[in-house]
Design a protein around this nucleic acid. Sequence first.
DNA 1: GGCAGCCGCGCG
DNA 2: AAAGCGCGCGGCTGCC
Length: 633
Amino acid sequence: MGTRNRQTSFPASPPFIQESLFDGNGRGMVPRSPAGQRQAREILKNRGIAIKYIRTAKRARQVIELLCKISGPLGLDTETARAQGFPAHPQAGLEPHLSSLRLVQLYGGGRHVYLFDLFTLPLDLLAPLWRRPLIAHNAVFDLKQLRHAGAVPRRLGCTLLMANALTGRRTGLADLAREYLGWEIPKDLQTSNWSAPQLSFEQLAYAALDAVAVLNLYHELKTRLKARRLAGVYTRMRDAQAAIAALELNGIHFDRPGHAALLDQWQRTQTAARGNLARILGPHVNPDSGGQLSRWLADNLDARTLAQWPVTPHGQLRTNLASLKRFTGHPLVAPLSQYKDTTKMISTFGTAFAEHINPVTRRIHASFRLGGTSTGRLACAAPNIQNPPRDLQFRALFKAPPGRVIVVADYGQIELRVAALVSGDANMLKAYAAGLDLHRKTAAAVAGVATSQVTPEQRQAAKAVNFGLLYGQGAKGLARYARAQYGVAMSLTQAEQARRAFFRAYPGLQRWQQDTIREVRRTGCIATPDGRVRRFKAGRVYSEALNTPIQGGAAEVLLATLSLLESHLAGIDALLVNLIHDEIVLEVAREDGTRACRALEEAMIAGMKTVFPRADTRGLVEAAVGDSWAEAK
DNA sequence: GGCAGCCGCGCG
DNA sequence: AAAGCGCGCGGCTGCC
């Protein structure tokens, strides 16, 4: 008999699976059975590990007692099914509100791996396990599913994050198992039907193997983390997992009718702009096509303008607005600008954005990825709620539901503060110790006036100077950046002068930059304050190398804060609903608003002190309350 | 039809 | 000598 029939011939209610069931189907005779399906069993069999499939409360209690006696961590995995009612939703089976928990797999080493079937067992039965140390791969996923189902694991490690600390990447379990264990573990059943009344033997073997692999991986990765002094990078992320799980599970409330109205407004503006554009470009140029716009420019500009027009790395004429605006008064600029604005809003923040509203919770549950970037920042997707337009009309759509308010707090100038701490520049540190604003100080240095004499314009220009020069920008780049980002007209000469004044004001920073570059050239890598290592291929590393410890240090501060958030907010009705690198957004019961502000500020200050114990925290954070993200800002 | 690279652009 | 960095997403384009 072939494996194809295994599913139907499987006994209806096995108390557990005997090892003898590993035998049977021998040679690969069945064409429709992927190679991987047999390998799950073979790996388990070769290691002498039997599957115990638990479907009765009595067996569950016995097994749990056994598992709780194991001193080391247990490998954990879960399988989830698409929730009834959402068979076709893209997040069904992934997002907890659209999923049901089917299996919990646990492996403590030794000869048995345990599968608890939650279609027949209440999850409460497993409660004693949630105080044990557990290891999962991409543990935030399992944590969310378990928390949503009513279980709260307290000590959860993650092999994805362990490997991330080692490599900087987010690698799947199968790839890690291949690399570190030499195991070929199948992934083809990941998306199989986990709500089937009878799970197939292949499914059970697949599920079991993940828990076994994850525990084996844990031991391998732990040794390597220790040897390479990267354990702290891992634990920083590990301790933020509970906050991230809560954040994703909470979601953020979004005003759908308000959004529809705004979208309608954008579409009207876009239609008008498209008409104006067509009068200039003619009917055959697609304004969405960089290539076509570029060719139009080539055909319509005079030779002198053409000669100085910016080009892309592939030699095409640039068609971004910054380039267009350099040739002031060009009739294309105004309508194209309006068209591009509205088109961007409609495509990214229009219908596509609203499609991420969860049908069950009516909230947006984005995905935040620990270790998602090469500096250690979080990445966010589906949708990315770290980059919604700052336009107040849009941010107001993130409004608190009735009876609740939004609390927002951000770190002021955190990257400059981290730069001061990492470089040890005496003047920068002195400024922060005195509670001074560094943009003002830089402005005074560049303009050659006292800090009290700095004009708003000078301070604005100093922002560009600070953020640009911090990461090794040249005079030309600075001039362009100041205009594009801060609306400050700066000549090349002025930019050069600002550059000299900046480094004269902060000689410690300049020395740090030089030392850093030298180190990167020598070693090919650079580390963040926690010790996260970023490796570079030969060539073009200059600004990335200068940026990594600073952006990374700021990211580490946020992670530290996240690990403190739950305890600081204890007793307050507050939900974490968004994180934007240096900003934390909570949704809070209206009567708890003020308390939440103070608690959040304290947590953020404590987070800073965790990573940088000597940091001066005057003016570091300020929290505010409002009915929406726009109002609380 | 799916996929990858390029480009532009939203945010910090 | 000179060099801002980090993301995700959508449209277009060329390729398979």
